[in-house]
Design a binder for these strands. Structure first.
Length: 434
RNA sequence: GCGGGCGUAGCUCAGCUGGUAGAGCCCCGGAUUGUGAUUCCGGCCGUCGCGGGUUCGAAUCCCGUCGCUCGCCCCA
């Protein structure tokens, strides 16, 4: 094992056996967003470091110690994106997408954070992102959550619950924060080391401390809900009402805060107990100030991100199967002339039956070993062509599943015969079907 | 950044209190002529993570190191 080239820590290869789940998630998301009228947008993996400092917050853990930042050859400080929203907002402003118009968008791809890897947390991880720009009412808050809820249904995920909260406006939050700091200052003795640190950096995070010894002090702290500004309170009440009307079960969690500075008003998080300590599966919220903060016209916005690794983990933990795609036909080619004819025969089958899958044997091998490969491939049918068959212009079609019957078939009738055996329709077009 | 657990064939693992490695799977070949999944036979596969120490002798003990993993933190 020595001197072996290894992947970078926390950046995982996705081997073929994992891909069926990933493809299921990605395909589902793609049709899901289309059904809600959300359009896909793609932005670079690398942005100016400044963008993330200004959006996520300079004093957040993400920016302070988790970003992959570097200087490029021109001397600019760039960073691999630790999340998608900042880049999306930047792109929307830059291309005038928010000028007198609303946008409902989604994107997906890898994100990067230099954290200690553990279950459900990796240095390169993958998110699907949903964002709605220009809608200020709580109706769209509910819509984006509906999208996530439908995705769980599509994927058969049940072990998740929704928690919601409101952070109010930056002004009301600033006032509340001062109260909170004052309270915890008075109870300094009850705080653990982490919370003392948070008291300086992000006091609201003390509220979601997992330390049991802290719970009493936290319970006595002023609640954010009691200090919301009237508009935010009305927004939140309407939001909860609409959520209920939309039939989405939720619970209000006054301790739900977010790690990114840009959130305002509605925040929410889907959590699970099935994935160990990394329990957030999908989370998001409103960020009404961010667009203006990054230089765009003032534009209300809301969005969420989900972690694909965690979604896949949930499906696997629940025992959901995701079947690998399997070719319908395995082409056994025995002998020189058969090998020579085989490539063209395979192409004709693919023309006639696009999507069915025709796996041609490559690299020779005895008939026996080719039959073994045919069986292993999972194919329904083995199409056996040897020099004898070539000589008489036919092929042997053998069923590999169920009754192992075998029949001879003239080469020119192969597409029809195979289509019939597979219960598929022939491609009517004469080209390659694209 | 801080703790715990673990590192033996491609994979899953066995190897008790030290005597220089084993199984299953996979892969390849064979068991009558050109036909798979079962069965049988054979073959392939390791500097026991790496470095050092103790010892006549270490995969087995000790130290260090790297890696993986789980938790803290953070968060999707």
């Amino acid at each position: 094992m020595k001197d072996k080239l290894q992947a970078v820590r926390g950046m995982n290869d996705l081997l073929t056996d994992q891909l069926p789940w990933w493809q299921l998630v990605e395909r589902s998301a793609c049709t899901l967003f289309a059904d809600y009228g959300y359009q896909e947008l793609r932005v670079p993996l690398v942005e100016r470091t400044e963008l993330f400092k200004r959006s996520i917050g300079e004093h957040t853990d993400i920016v302070e110690k988790e970003m992959y930042s570097f200087e490029d050859r021109g001397g600019d400080s760039l960073s691999l994106r630790p999340e998608a929203t900042a880049g999306l907002v930047r792109a929307a402003i830059e291309h005038g997408l928010l000028h007198n118009q609303k946008q409902r968008l989604w994107t997906s791809g890898p994100m990067f954070r230099h954290e200690r890897p553990q279950q459900g947390r990796y240095r390169q991880f993958h998110q699907i992102d949903c964002e709605a720009f220009g809608y200020e009412g709580p109706d769209v808050d509910v819509e984006v959550i509906q999208i996530s809820a439908r995705l769980w249904r599509m994927l058969g995920i049940t072990d998740v619950r929704l928690r919601v909260n409101s952070l109010g406006t930056p002004e009301s939050r600033r006032q509340y924060r001062a109260l909170l700091v004052a309270y915890f200052e008075r109870h300094r003795a009850a705080l653990d080391a982490d919370s003392l640190r948070r008291l300086e950096s992000n006091p609201m995070r003390i509220l979601d401390s997992k330390n049991p010894a802290m719970q009493e002090a936290i319970a006595g702290a002023p609640a954010l809900a009691d200090h919301l500004d009237p508009d935010s309170r009305a927004h939140f009440e309407r939001f909860c009402d609409l959520l209920g009307a939309g039939g989405i079960p939720y619970e209000v969690d006054p301790r739900l805060v977010r790690g990114l500075d840009y959130y305002t008003r509605t925040v929410f998080e889907w959590t699970t107990t099935a994935l160990g300590t990394q329990d957030a599966v999908c989370s998001g919220g409103r960020y009404d100030g961010l667009v203006a903060q990054l230089g765009g016209d003032p534009t209300p916005a809301i969005g969420w991100a989900l972690g694909i690794e965690r979604i896949v983990g949930l499906m696997q933990a629940a025992g959901k199967a995701a079947d690998a795609t399997v070719p319908a036909v395995y082409l056994v080619l025995s002998g020189d002339r058969a090998e020579r004819a085989g490539l063209a025969i395979a192409e004709r089958l693919r023309d006639a039956l696009p999507g069915a899958g025709c796996l041609a044997n490559m690299g020779g091998g005895s008939l026996k070993s080719q039959m073994k490969r045919a069986d292993k491939s999972g194919a329904q049918l083995a199409l056996i062509i040897g020099d004898d068959e070539i000589a008489r212009g036919s092929a042997a079609v053998r069923k590999l599943r169920g009754d192992a019957s075998q029949q001879d078939c003239p080469l020119h009738e192969l597409p029809e015969r195979i289509a019939a055996l597979l219960g598929r329709k022939l491609n009517s077009r004469s080209d390659d079907g694209r």
